[in-house]
Design a protein around this nucleic acid. Sequence first.
DNA 1: TAAATAAACTCGTCTCACGAGCATAATAAC
DNA 2: GTTATTATGCTCGTGAGACGAGTTTATTTA
Lengths: 392, 392
Amino acid sequence: MTTMRAEALRVQGALALLRHAHEHPGVTRAEAAASLGLSSGSATEIMGRLRAARLLGERAPAPTGGRGRPSTVLVAHPEGPLVAVVELTHATWTVTTAAIGGELAPAPEHRHRGGPPGEVLAEVGAALAGLRARHGDRLAAVGVAVPGTVRGHTLAQAATLRWRDVDLSGLAASAGGVPLTVGNDASLAGVAEALRGAARGAAVALYLTVEVGIGGVLLVGGAPVLGATGAGGEFGHVPFGDPGRRCPCGATGCWDLMVDGRAMARSLGRAEPEDPRAFAGEVLAAARAGDGPARAAVTAAADAFGRGLGALINALDPAVVTLAGLGVDLLEVAGDTVVAAVHRAAMAWRRRDGLPPIVPTRLGSRGPAIGAAEAALAAVLADLTRERVTRR
Amino acid sequence: MTTMRAEALRVQGALALLRHAHEHPGVTRAEAAASLGLSSGSATEIMGRLRAARLLGERAPAPTGGRGRPSTVLVAHPEGPLVAVVELTHATWTVTTAAIGGELAPAPEHRHRGGPPGEVLAEVGAALAGLRARHGDRLAAVGVAVPGTVRGHTLAQAATLRWRDVDLSGLAASAGGVPLTVGNDASLAGVAEALRGAARGAAVALYLTVEVGIGGVLLVGGAPVLGATGAGGEFGHVPFGDPGRRCPCGATGCWDLMVDGRAMARSLGRAEPEDPRAFAGEVLAAARAGDGPARAAVTAAADAFGRGLGALINALDPAVVTLAGLGVDLLEVAGDTVVAAVHRAAMAWRRRDGLPPIVPTRLGSRGPAIGAAEAALAAVLADLTRERVTRR
DNA sequence: TAAATAAACTCGTCTCACGAGCATAATAAC
DNA sequence: GTTATTATGCTCGTGAGACGAGTTTATTTA
């Protein structure tokens, strides 16, 4: 009866190399060994074990042009573990796979009719069963990104889908009973941005996405700060707005209400739009085309957005702020207004020392899926601690 | 030329036991081995190495009353490493030591006249030199808690001391050139609360202290989220207050202005007090004694405090909120008001699911010193990764 | 074709943790 | 007071991982 600690210790070196290869796709064995401080002998030994365990493979390098024996490139083992990645949006679903290294296999986007959960989940489940049939035991985990509040394996609330308390653990069963990780799309996109996007390497990063309301997450060392119940990152429901205005969330003055399509409609004297996201798109297009009232509405939203951003920068001191969704548009159309508002809201000494850069997402709409893949792969790597990665 | 990775791996088991003993003072060897999953043989071997390295010792147990051979209690080695702990407040300084396990040696509190930095630092430096003379090489690090903004080893700004850009690295020299960790007093108190106080074990905890303005820190897994420049936790400068009111920090509407002695003075129609902290104390005493206007002023502050708290709970979703300073008084005198305001500011589903407990600090005024000791000891433990903890 | 260079492989050695068996220190039962 | 019971600590042979010196291999340059 060998204890877990010993096993964990044993595979430490192997796991370190595996993690490094995952986090630095395309790295050569020699580079990896150097940055981990491994001797070439140890690297050989560890690679032998990882190859035998079907975790990591090597391929011939693209010729570097330099002298000396070329080093092999570390890649996912061709028969190595895969994770299934499910991305659910208010109108589409996508199922694909990712291997160590994090790259997503291309996959088609399916539209759904926004019906009851069972209908959509059946389709997704069938796709997962297909992956299971194709890849068998290689399928090691499922990562799911959903547009709503997540608690454990259930989607507690998804306003755009009009779903409540939907249990997603059936998806794990469809994929053969493998571990399941479920996350909010914005949180996962933030993770992706911190691991492989515009916030890579930042010790503390803030990710904010504006669609209908504001979603976001604080990332510390690439890990999302999800809070005690997994519902952290509700920055939209901090009262940076008009204290007299009641939010559907039950609080008043929420920042949410000042930034999105609903706010623009109010600025323009219109009724609340059916689809605030689409409405915001129209207003932004008009503003880009030079329409005066539209510009004013966009500028007002940009100002409110920047004011809140400045306050969050005061409180959290991120090294970088990454924006997605309408945030990118506000930055493009009224970047000066955003920056000026951030400036005004920031503490004086922060202005002097330089505020963090505010940059658009680099992964765009693939963020949630990439983040879901990372979450699932992290679970797979963590699980290996218990498995045997021994010689032969 | 042995690489670092190998050394790090070698001492892993020893470090794990050492950390466990540090984090669970008074644990027995048998308990520690069980929770780390070590066999009794391994525990013996590791303890042998740790004893030989003068890191950990054992003492005879208090009789448990149970059957069987009693297990020894893990304690800091009597000749083991010590850290010097410096706590600087607006009116006092204290220098003491802590060993593995984190307990502070009792030490007198010295008053200072709030003069120029050199004067006070000379006194502190002399005390550190004294510790160095007494303990020699056992003194392994210095941890400092200061009432102000810290950047690296310099105290960038300390309003109550009227210091700016004071370099503290001289303190390391006084102690014999050992590593130095400097931290903001509120951040360190938060760390202490998370590791050994009321927030122990919480995955995410929020610590807030009200003195003049609001200091605080978010703790994730016991580690402070200090942000990119080390200036995170400025929750007092988030605009939960009156948007028209300008804050000395350069922003407007800061929460700070609504909660402390200055706010109470405004409520009472008084001029801004010289010493807002002392003034707040008087108002609280009057409120406790039943004075009507004082009660109203305290209630207003409690309401503003609770409103901001609720917003922060929305954004960060802590498992527990720990209060210090005036926050404790507000909770005692007007706890109902605080809780009601939190309730109103929280999102509806959070109200339903239960808000996190809001509790007073358990470490009181010793928080900053305990946190400084923890920070310094963490540096010492991290350093051991490179040292040899080998047999004999 | 040979020299230079960089990387991978081989193999003897070291250290760590394991675990089975034995020794020890306390309480409980008689 | 003596013996059984129980939990713990110690001894020691074993296996695994990483090291590093020396050797082999693959590529570029002369």
